[in-house]
Simulated scan of single mutants.
Amino acid sequence: MQRVRVSSFQSPISKMTLSPQFGLAEIQSSLLDPSLELELSNRGERLIPGLPDDVALQCLLRVPVDKHSTCKAVCKRWYSLFGSKEHFFTRRKEFSFHDQWLFVFAHHKCTGKLEWKVLDLTQFSWHTIPAMPCKDEVCPQGFRCVSIPHEGVLFVCGGVASDVDCPLNLVLKYEVCKNHWTVMTKMITARSFFASGIIDGMVYVAGGNSRDMVELNSAEVLDPNKGTWRSVANMGTNIASYDAAVLNGKLLVTEGWYWPFYVVPRGQVYDPITDNWENMATGLREGWTGSSVVMYEHLFVVTEHERTKLKVYDNETDSWCTVEGPPLPEQICKPFCVDCWDNRIYVVGRNLHLAVGHISSPCPRGSSTKRCRFSVHWQVVDAPESLSELTPSSAKVLFA
């Protein structure tokens, strides 16, 4: 198992604010004017002397975020490029640069303050983004977060006001290229502890708790382009969701389980094509004992019991198989949250320590083996001491 020590140095992503008493705000504004960059270019002032600007830009757009403050001091053109995160990431998008960033929604275990921390998965450095525009007295676990990774977009929905135990219909949108939160149209129904997922770019939410902790059976969908919600078919039963996943174009919702199993967990599956819900297969719902991700068109679960092993669901036999390899590293303490990309699964535990699970490729096509076998090996990334008071609620991979 490989361990990586992360530097405790942090550089904020949010925009720098300058004191007006020194008259620097106007200077900064003029230096960030796009027309100035064009004017300097026309004068022959190169981004990097001796290199064409298109080549130089390819180099500079790869500079890590924590080095931007230093780079701004080089010259006016560098200040223009590195002085605005929106401008920098917009230019990266134009050049089709896509680096992975892990966005972690966490709360301080003593103050309860909500925070978003961002881990650059290339440089393994932590950063911050602006605070969400929501009230302070909220339960972090009541929110649901979904993302569209390649668009660099994150949605935060619902929640519950902990001071009055009242569910919320809040919807917030964060865009990496703008480093900015937008308040979207509210959900039709206020809900907390519900299921959520993105199918074909549409945001689906279902079930959850309403006022007085009454479970819901309603569901709705958001069209992010239009910014409008509409109702879809009600679920077959009232469910407050423990976990959810999107597999083969369908939304899988599990009620969850209690240890030991005092009650049999319920589960529902939604097909957006037919706008219909059906009961989840018995083996699938009874073996779903942890937090899920979808990789290789298979549902994986990081179990919260069973020695915290990783397991995968076999649709043909309606059963779960243990993934070969060691259990989740002991440094990753519950509660934890998970996400994945490509062949890696990211598990963020208490104090924001991270385990990266490298999943082996499944059986090649044409193999005589009917059931694909997977294996995992873990890499641990220790978070800096400054994050030791944080507990994660959600983690999402975005590209920027």
Results as ranks from 00 to 15, higher is better:
95 F>I: 10
95 F>L: 15
95 F>D: 11
143 F>P: 13
107 H>E: 13
155 F>S: 04
138 V>A: 01
120 D>E: 00
150 H>E: 11
143 F>G: 09
105 F>I: 03
95 F>K: 15
168 L>F: 04
132 M>Y: 04
100 Q>P: 10
144 R>P: 01
109 K>E: 14
158 G>M: 00
143 F>T: 06
157 C>K: 00
124 F>R: 05
111 T>A: 12
133 P>C: 04
111 T>Q: 06
106 A>D: 04
150 H>A: 05
154 L>V: 09
124 F>L: 07
112 G>Y: 08
171 V>L: 00
142 G>C: 12
131 A>T: 13
154 L>P: 00
136 D>R: 15
158 G>S: 00
168 L>W: 00
117 K>C: 09
126 W>Y: 09
125 S>N: 07
99 D>F: 12
113 K>R: 15
119 L>T: 04
139 C>A: 09
102 L>Q: 03
97 F>L: 15
147 S>H: 07
134 C>G: 05
100 Q>N: 08
102 L>M: 03
119 L>C: 12
160 V>F: 03
156 V>K: 02
103 F>A: 03
162 S>C: 09
167 P>W: 11
135 K>F: 07
124 F>H: 13
151 E>P: 01
165 D>A: 06
155 F>M: 05
151 E>G: 02
97 F>C: 08
155 F>N: 05
116 W>I: 14
108 H>V: 08
131 A>W: 01
107 H>K: 07
158 G>I: 00
164 V>K: 13
135 K>T: 14
108 H>C: 14
95 F>M: 14
118 V>M: 03
158 G>H: 00
107 H>T: 13
124 F>M: 09
110 C>D: 12
126 W>N: 06
102 L>N: 02
100 Q>M: 06
170 L>C: 10
102 L>W: 07
160 V>C: 15
166 C>W: 09
152 G>A: 03
108 H>Q: 08
96 S>L: 09
138 V>N: 00
163 D>Q: 04
137 E>D: 14
95 F>C: 13
94 E>K: 11
139 C>W: 11
165 D>M: 07
149 P>T: 10
94 E>R: 10
171 V>H: 01
96 S>I: 04
169 N>W: 01
170 L>F: 07
164 V>P: 02
105 F>V: 02
146 V>N: 06
138 V>T: 14
111 T>I: 10
138 V>F: 00
162 S>Q: 06
94 E>F: 06
161 A>R: 15
118 V>Q: 01
173 K>A: 03
168 L>Y: 02
140 P>V: 02
114 L>K: 09
149 P>D: 02
148 I>W: 01
146 V>Q: 11
160 V>N: 10
96 S>T: 10
112 G>D: 04
120 D>T: 02
130 P>S: 02
132 M>K: 05
139 C>L: 14
102 L>V: 00
160 V>P: 02
97 F>R: 13
112 G>V: 06
101 W>T: 08
162 S>A: 10
164 V>W: 05
103 F>H: 05
115 E>I: 13
114 L>D: 02
145 C>Q: 11
137 E>M: 12
171 V>D: 01
166 C>K: 12
110 C>S: 12
125 S>H: 15
154 L>Y: 03
113 K>P: 00
162 S>L: 06
141 Q>M: 12
144 R>D: 06
126 W>H: 05
146 V>W: 03
100 Q>R: 13
149 P>L: 07
161 A>G: 04
168 L>A: 05
95 F>E: 15
143 F>C: 08
104 V>H: 03
99 D>V: 01
128 T>S: 14
